[in-house]
Design a protein around this nucleic acid. Structure first.
Lengths: 151, 151
DNA sequence: CACCACGTTCAGTATTGACTAAACGTTCTA
DNA sequence: TAGAACGTTTAGTCAATACTGAACGTGGTG
């Protein structure tokens, strides 16, 4: 299972996730779960990632909180096992949509701040508002279409 | 111009941008340019943001590199002035699309890594690939539609 | 009951990242 | 040509972040 391609995938996922503002270990853990063919226990992740159990524990849980992974039980075993959550990618994209709405809200606040008189600032903020309203709505629709096809 | 609403807008933009993985000062600088009614010099930004000129210089330039701002000249003045770039939001969204394509590429690598045999890992990676291909293409189309309407 | 086997929490540590002040290079001007 | 006005670069500092090892709590098990 720890073949070179798999390891490289995990590593690249770590870098990709890091570029999104999360930690590299978090990304590696996510990548590991992506290529695992069964749910993994904390100790197994420790083994594969070469990080402390404490780190795996916290990262796995925040992975769960973000909706990327979920905890599953195994009969006759009281360890925690983690696997990628169903619809993980839809879920993370839905969070992006929330952020987009927040940007639209910010634009609206900006419009209040600059006042009613015509100005370049007002034009820019209006464009920002329109753009993020548009994108937010449209991406939500994309998600719905995706769910129809793949759900 | 430094009215409380404007200041709050700048501050919130700082926080919003910070949540996206960039620095708060960067976000504040961007927010300041958003509500400015004319291009601003480095010294003016120093004044408004209360940070060092070195920080403003580097942040303004990376703002430019990201396509969010551009440098403009003023006749008979050799200072650098910055303003929000036209199509700034389209541009930043286009970069997101690049990141989405990168995720699709990563999924493709993962598929190679896990081999051809059916497995849960393969299913997940396939879903990831399909999802990001779909999203990448569709968001590109959204951008084109936006340009048609607003361009 | 004593002992494991887990997962979590906490204090300490190391690393990363961003900001500052100062030095620097360049271009204009008196 | 000396000096001022800029923007950039760099070395150093400070704070935030993430990881580690150890202690801890909890629930099963002999």
């Amino acid at each position: 299972m720890p073949n070179p391609e798999t390891r490289q995938f995990i590593e690249r996922m770590g870098l990709a996730i890091e570029r999104m503002g999360l930690s590299r270990t978090f990304g590696r853990l996510f990548g590991l779960l992506m290529v695992a063919d069964r749910p993994l226990s904390l100790d197994e992740m420790v083994e594969r990632l070469h990080v402390s159990k404490a780190s795996v524990s916290t990262n796995a849980r925040s992975c769960e909180e973000l909706g990327l992974a979920r905890r599953v039980g195994v009969r006759g075993d009281r360890k925690d096992y983690y696997e990628i959550a169903p619809r993980a990618f839809e879920h993370v994209t839905a969070k992006r949509v929330v952020a987009i709405h927040a940007m639209a809200g910010l634009a609206a606040e900006g419009l209040v701040a600059v006042g009613d008189d015509p100005s370049p600032a007002r034009d820019r903020l209006t464009e920002m508002l329109d753009f993020y309203m548009f994108m937010g709505e449209q991406i939500e629709e994309l998600l719905e279409r995706w769910r129809e096809v793949k759900g």
